[in-house]
Design a protein around this nucleic acid. Structure first.
Lengths: 197, 197
DNA sequence: TAGAATACTGACTGAGTACTCAGTTAGTAT
DNA sequence: ATACTAACTGAGTACTCAGTCAGTATTCTA
């Protein structure tokens, strides 16, 4: 593994678990057996390093979601929503670190003054919300899901499912106990109320 | 206003808008017209100052919620949930800064190593979730709300409503557009499905 | 009014920070 | 054999930070 890659990986971990400010470039150099200057040779500044991390994260998520969408277009809409929620929760468990990074304020703060950062964040959240949105639109076409603005409902569901991931990170509540309730809640939110039957 | 109070207020604002690490004690002193040492005379350390802020925030929220509960026990359950959600959203708009503070990682990170901090956070979130839980239990008694573990459903609703507040903070989506959808979603989640009618 | 207690001051310290830059090294093209 | 280049080095720089402390002002009490 090149030093560049090693530094990028170490930075991803440290930015996620300790935050931007708490991460020191000196430490990153030590962790990867590099010299101080090597960090700046490859990434110019600490902020540019953070942006490189975010870009890498975006690429990884985009790949994950493209892969998922390819294999998840078979079931009726209601089940697709359920499936999407499960997928999101599994992904959050598998890539805990990346979700920690996105749940920090660092990226959002930078996005306020740096347009490139904002673009990365928007792309990532478009993936997240998009998965739910597609399922909802599919369900509205096959009649299993009620008619309403799909984007808004997708945001709501994403917010709820992501909230479960946040609860896990916060260590204040046991998220395992409400895992099934979240899935049930999703179904209740979207399912079409049969008018006649 | 005493210097102690001035420093506490300035710290609350700065911790909320800029974060713990980005807030410097030197700056707090300048902002309040105090000397460097005065901050440490009253609060011993930066961490103790943060804890004092959190304690103050807890007291303020507890007062707000007691006040709210006193005047909100009249309607049937479903409407109480709706009312609770509206109250939460109004409070978040009114006390934007305090919610910003609670949406940062700072307090949760400290809570992992400091039990007093953890207690404060737990108390605050007990207020938040408790308001929804009471409404649900009331609704289960008067038959307007389905029977399920009230605490879990309260957590879910809180998560969703709080997600709206987070969206506002993130500046990535327009939360105004889904405000009515959130309230509608709450109603859908909890309302009892009439078996006969 | 003496003197004790409390509130406050601000220059100072030392550890830590991001970032620089002149120079080394290994590899490759000519 | 020579020239060139990208990757890397690590001591050095200028700066910020939380926290200290010896001293001063203010208030309270006997």
């Amino acid at each position: 593994m090149s030093k560049r890659t090693a530094i990028l990986n170490a930075a991803t971990r440290s930015f996620a678990t300790r935050g931007f400010r708490e991460t020191s470039t000196t430490e990153l150099a030590q962790m990867t057996g590099s010299a101080e200057g090597t960090v700046f040779y490859h990434f110019e500044s600490k902020e540019k390093l953070f942006l490189a991390v975010l870009e890498h994260v975006r690429c990884e998520f985009e790949r994950d979601f493209v892969e998922y969408l390819e294999r998840a277009n078979v079931n009726p809409g209601v089940e697709m929503v359920d499936e999407a929620a499960r997928f999101y929760l599994e992904l959050a468990a598998e890539k805990e670190e990346l979700f920690l990074l996105l749940h920090r304020s660092d990226a959002f703060e930078l996005a306020r003054v740096n347009d490139h950062c904002r673009k990365q964040l928007e792309a990532i959240f478009d993936c997240f919300v998009g998965v739910f949105e597609r399922a909802l639109i599919k369900g509205q076409q096959d009649g299993t899901i009620e008619a309403f603005p799909a984007r808004n409902m997708a945001l709501l569901i994403f917010t709820m499912v992501d909230g479960l991931v946040r609860l896990r990170d916060s260590c204040l509540y046991d998220p395992g106990a409400i895992y099934p309730d979240v899935l049930e809640a999703c179904r209740k939110l979207v399912a079409r109320r049969l008018p006649a039957e």
